[in-house]
Simulated assay, not measured.
Amino acid sequence: MVVAAPKQAPRVYSQSEVQSMASEGRYVYTCNGRVYDVKVEEIMHPGGRDVLESYKGQDISAAFKGQCTVAHLHSRGARALLERYCVGVLEGSEDAAAAGGMALPDADLVDEGKPLLPQVVHLDPDTYLAWVDAPSTGHPVMFDNAFVERMTCTQWYVVPLLWVPIAAALLWRGWARGGVPLVHLPALVAIGVLVWQLIEYSIHRWLFHLKPTTPEGIKWHFMLHGHHHKYPMDFDRLVFPPVPAGLVMALFYNLLCAIVPWGYASALLGGGILGYVVYDTTHWALHSNAWDPFVTQILRTSHMDHHYVNDKVGYGISSTLYDILFGTLSPQVRKVV
């Protein structure tokens, strides 16, 4: 019989040790008797780096619970992220008194040093969903096949470099060869963008957030969207790889050709692709905190609420239009629109 090794008891830190770590430039905090050494380069703090700087070495319990005038109640996602950086307990706290029999929070369900997909399919659905629902950091490998892993990681700039010329060619084709009057193109582009935003919303809400009930369902859920909710700062997986995006565009085009003449279908697809480019680059900017002309505070709040507060709201990425129409607007956004 194999006996599991006992978990290591957490280290007990004195207040002076915490202050010393903070004076060295480390983003160390105490909260509810525990000590956290946060790697700020791994996270995006919506309140900005200045807030993290101002609280270094301090007890953030009240701020984290929204019990002081300059703070707010932090979400379940924020609490899950904070626990990733727990390094011990504070001397004199209740946790310190019980340190001999207490283990630090961990996530031993999977080994992040190994490919994740072969592991998550062995979790039961409820356990899997609870694990995905607790955001983490880093860039763990998803597939055990190195080629597949490489092909599913895409840098954000690939999206505009690949798809903007294709959109321009489709618009030119619709006008020059498809008989679409030039004055109709702006309206067709606008319609294409609005249709894409509906597709974006629908895929996100009714496909990506379909709850899995079988190992095969867990497999597809994790590949399509579960990985992103578990690792929202994995920059290599913030935009769609070209192959699956191309399949969606091909389906979109065939549907359009069945409804309207091919020249108009080309122009509408060109507008839809431009909408897709805005969607993917906006999604990148929302997570990376990079500047983007289409990112507003409303979009940022909506998407952060979707990830860290309630994944049943905020399905629109490039727009909140369909969240408004379908009643899935985040309560925080509803206060300002």
Rank of each mutant, 00 (worst) to 15 (best):
C68W: 02
P140S: 10
C153M: 12
V70Q: 10
H122W: 11
R76A: 06
P135N: 11
V141Q: 15
G66W: 13
P125T: 14
L90M: 09
V70E: 10
A97F: 01
G138M: 13
A96E: 03
F147T: 12
V120Y: 04
D144I: 03
L81P: 02
T152V: 08
S75L: 08
F147C: 01
V110T: 01
F147M: 07
E149S: 06
A96I: 02
D133Y: 08
G138D: 11
T137K: 00
A71Q: 06
E112V: 15
L123N: 02
A98D: 12
T127P: 03
G101K: 09
T152A: 05
L123T: 01
D111L: 12
P135R: 05
Y128E: 11
M102N: 06
G138C: 12
E83L: 12
C86L: 05
G66L: 14
D144F: 00
M142T: 13
T137Q: 00
V87L: 07
D108E: 13
N145F: 04
R84W: 00
P118A: 13
S136D: 14
Q119K: 13
A99C: 07
R84P: 01
G113T: 15
D108K: 09
V110E: 02
H72A: 14
V132M: 06
G113F: 09
G92W: 09
P118Y: 12
V87Y: 06
R79C: 01
L104Q: 00
Y85R: 10
Q67P: 04
A98P: 00
L117G: 03
D108V: 02
C68M: 04
V89C: 10
C153K: 15
H74N: 08
T127E: 13
P140A: 07
L90G: 04
R76S: 06
V89M: 10
V87M: 05
V121Y: 04
L117W: 02
V110C: 10
M142W: 04
G66I: 13
K114L: 15
C86H: 06
D95P: 04
A103G: 12
C68T: 14
A107W: 13
P125M: 07
L82W: 00
P140C: 10
E149L: 08
G100D: 14
L109D: 12
P125I: 11
G100C: 07
D95Y: 07
L104D: 02
D106W: 04
G138A: 13
L82R: 07
L90C: 05
D124N: 11
H139N: 13
K114D: 06
E91D: 15
G138Q: 10
M142S: 06
P135W: 04
H74I: 03
H139W: 04
V87S: 04
A99E: 07
T69D: 14
D133Q: 11
H122I: 02
E94T: 10
G101C: 05
M142E: 13
R79V: 02
T152S: 11
H72D: 10
L73S: 10
P118Q: 14
R150P: 02
